[in-house]
Structure formats: C-alpha cells, structure tokens
Design a protein around this nucleic acid. Sequence first.
RNA 1: UCCUUCUUAGCUCAGUUGGUUAGAGCACAUGACUGUUAAUCAUGGGGUCCUUGGUUCAAGCCCAAGAGAGGGAGCCA
Length: 491
Amino acid sequence: MRVIAHLKGLLIYYRMQIKEILGLTAAQQAITVKGWVRTKRNSAAVAFIAINDGSTINNIQAVVNEGSIPEETLKLVTTGACIAVHGLLIPSQGQGQSVEIQVNSIEIYGLADPEKYPLQPKKHSLEFLREIGHLRPRTNTFSAILRIRHALAFAINTYFNDHGFFYLHTPIITGSDAEGAGEMFRVTTLPAINPPLTEDGKVDYKEDFFGKETNLTVSGQLEGELGALALSKIYTFGPTFRAENSNTTRHLAEFWMVEPEMAFFELTDNMNLAEDFTKFLIKYALDHCADDIAFLEKRLLDEEKMKKKEEQSELTLSEKLKFVTENTFKRLTYTEAIDILLQSKAHKQGKFNYPVAWGIDLQSEHERYLVEKHFKKPVILTHYPKEIKAFYMKQEVDGKTVRAMDVLFPGIGEIIGGSQREDDYEKLLQRTKEVGIEEESIWWYLQTRQFGSAPHSGFGLGFERLVLFVTGMSNIRDVIPFPRTPKTAEF
RNA sequence: UCCUUCUUAGCUCAGUUGGUUAGAGCACAUGACUGUUAAUCAUGGGGUCCUUGGUUCAAGCCCAAGAGAGGGAGCCA
C-alpha cells in the first residue's frame, strides 16, 4: 500500500483500481474503491455489493454488515449506481474470491433508478445492447472487448516500433480517389441548398474550402508509399471511411486500418511480415488479456450449447487463437487455388453458388472452402489476375498476374490485402490509363517512380476484423465502441 | 443494393383453425432469511401486440404499404 495514515484516529483511504487490489494479499488495509454496482445481494444481517471499475473483468465484493451503513444509503446502492466504498481489505470468508472489502462508509456518486436502468443483472442480447451503445461499455462482454481492442492497438505500435517502422500520420481528408476503392464521403463547407454552380450547372468546388472536391480517406496507402520511399519502413494506423451501402457482419462505414509500407521489400518479405505480425498480435492478446479472453471463451461456449451439433465449433476461442500462432500459414498462388477448387467435391457436386474458373474474383464461399475445409489454417493467396486487382500492384513477368497477396482467416475471410507495388514508371502510367485514372490527379504518386524509385511492398489490415477474430465475436458492430453503419450514427 | 427472417411487458420469448379479461421466465418492488456469488423462497405491480390502412360480426393472428432490426450475398478491410 502506498498511502495509509491515521490522522487523529481517522483512517485515510487510498483509492486503487480493482485490478490492482485483486492482486494484493489482504492485510487489514484501509482502502477505497470507486466504481459501478453490478449486483447487490441482501440478507438479514449482511449485504454484498459487487463493484466493477472497468480495470478488469473481475468485480470486487464489498461486504456491508448490519448497522454499519444507514439503511437509506444502502437502498440507493442499486445495479448501475456509481459509488465509492471505503473500508478494510480483508481475506474473504466466502468461496468466490480471495479478498473483499469490509465496508466502513459508502458515498453515492450517481444513482441508477432500478425501474429505468436498462442494464439488469441478466443476459442481454447483443442486438439490444447495440441500441444502448452509451451504456454497453459497462457490461462484462463489452468491457472485455474494449480492453482487448486496446491491447491489440498497443501491440501494433509496439511491434512496429520494435522492428524499425515509423508511425506516419496520413491525412483523413483527401483530394483524390486515386485508388478507386468504392464510394467516398464528401467533405465540404458549401451549403447543401443552392451551392455555387459552374457555367454548365455543376457544383463549383473551386468555391469550396479546399478549392477542390475532397473526401474522407478510403486508405492511407498512397501517402504511405511516399513515406516508405523516404523512411524505408512506415506504418499508418487510423480511421478509414467507406460510403458503401454494406450491411454485413464484416463491414463498417468507419473502421480502423493498419497499413505498413516498406521499401526494399518484395512479395515474399511482405508475406513474412504479415504472418509474423498477425501472430505477434494474437500472442500479445493471449499473454496480456488472459482474463478477458477466458471470459469471452466461456460466453461463446454457452452460446454454442444453444446451437445444433453440426454447427458447433470444434475449437474453443483460445485453442483457435493458438492454432494461428502455432501453425505456418499456407501459401499458394491464385492459380493453384483455382485448381484445388475445380477438383473439389463441392465444385463437382455443384455446391458452389458461383462458378469457378481462372480469372474470376474468388467469392466468400470459395475462400471459406479453402480456409475452413481444405487447409484448415490461415491461407495466403498470391498472384491474382491483374484485371481483378488494383492498378498499383506490381505486374508479374507472365504479363497476366500481379504480385498481390490476401491473407484469409477462418470465419472472417480476408483480414489482410496487400501487394508488392509497381515501381516501374512506364508500367504504372500505362495501368493508370487502362483503369481510367486521370494522370493529373495523382501526379505526385507517379513522380515517386521517376525520382529514385525502389522496389517496395505493403498491406492493409482491417483492425476490427482482427479484434473480431481475437474476441470470437461474430458481428463487427460489437468490436468497435460506436459503430458507424448505413442508417446508424446514434452515439 | 438484392434475398430472407423477425418486430407482443424493462429484457428474452410463447400465444392453438381469427373468438370472452393477452401469458411465462428473467428483471423490478415489498416481505422472509446469520456469508451471498447473476443467492433462495413468498407476494405484487407492469401491455399503444412496430405504424398506417384494409378484410371480418370479431384481428396479436389474414391482406397491403411503410418503418426498424437480424442473417446471408455483393463490394471490401
């Protein structure tokens, strides 16, 4: 204990976080806990209050003996109320915990009317919790997810820092949609009604704040490449926006993306990094969030019991995570993958909804087959046909494929998409023209290939998809504090 | 955006071929209980059956439109 003092017979209490307290051996220490009431159990002579302050999944038990607290005060201690408890940390007489607080006094910070407070000590559906996004961080499940999310974010910075990468802050507002990665959110200060028009009746963006059309970024990659071609190894980690009308368990309109970009890395180096990086992140979570993962694992097991036998997962959450950290990812080319699909029973029996042939973009069902049925481990697919991949990917000598790579995980599909970048000016210019990108809009990008061009590679990791995998949750809206999806931006 | 399922108490749900006063569990309130573990036991309160319109003697139930949500697909991370 850091501060315990007796002043004229009064105990001075020192506030500690519950995570810290639960690691102590009790020794009649004066202590203060502040947090939110999870449950209160009354009996004639004693009341038990379970308090959580979010520092850990575990609660601390405060024990109120009859007469030590005015009954009117104890009545205000209801599920959801915020209180401070002052008392002595003592060994617990009960079974469920090693230490508990013998309460001397209680301060009420915030009431929670039990008739109105929506979070009751019972199971709630995830759909219902989404409707009360302002309160759901107070639940066990979401606090566990948010702590894991934090740990993974911290691990990302740790990994890159330890490997000589620099954190590059790429812009959120961009003036080009060079990647053509779908619909963008427009950024403007022009009035929505009667904006200034050009002579031919279109909105005159010369009058706008930036003097041109601007949008929220869909990727920091192009700017990331500029950084890599100066600092050798950089990464970006920030919010990304897609205005696509996607309503799935794997898409958000606002999500966080990790994008490393490395000079002098070829495709194989890129794959090695992607594999080592994801394994590190998962291992970090296993090492640092054991309590939270154990809680989510138990939650998942309870949920699995409700399902039919054939739909139940063979592995528990921690087994699934260790399976990734302990296995080598299967690497194969797109062409090899197509061959496997063509020879699969599923294809021969016509079980795929979409046809399989060289040149198609693989559908979810195809990816799932490869990852979950055929290899049963994470898969890295490389060398896709150039027609189905972005313009900036390095063309292979065969003239047909590009040095792309997608990392596919069980359950969530594509978690990483990356490539070696085209570093040949002429080839890149030709590709931009073929795809229909205006040269003037990305002159600065093209110029990097004219001045000191270098072989380089990079990839994008969807952060929420990683959190989805590590927490074992099934809907991406449940792994970000305040999800943004079509028609939803309440909190 | 397409396909599909759903919307009944604070929450999770049941509700028979359309028929009297719409039910359960949990939660909540009150009481009991000498240490509980989302305690237990007893009692009690709690409803715009998503909205609008229609069919019918009669609609939670049938029909139409709309709104919202879930799952799948596409797009992708």
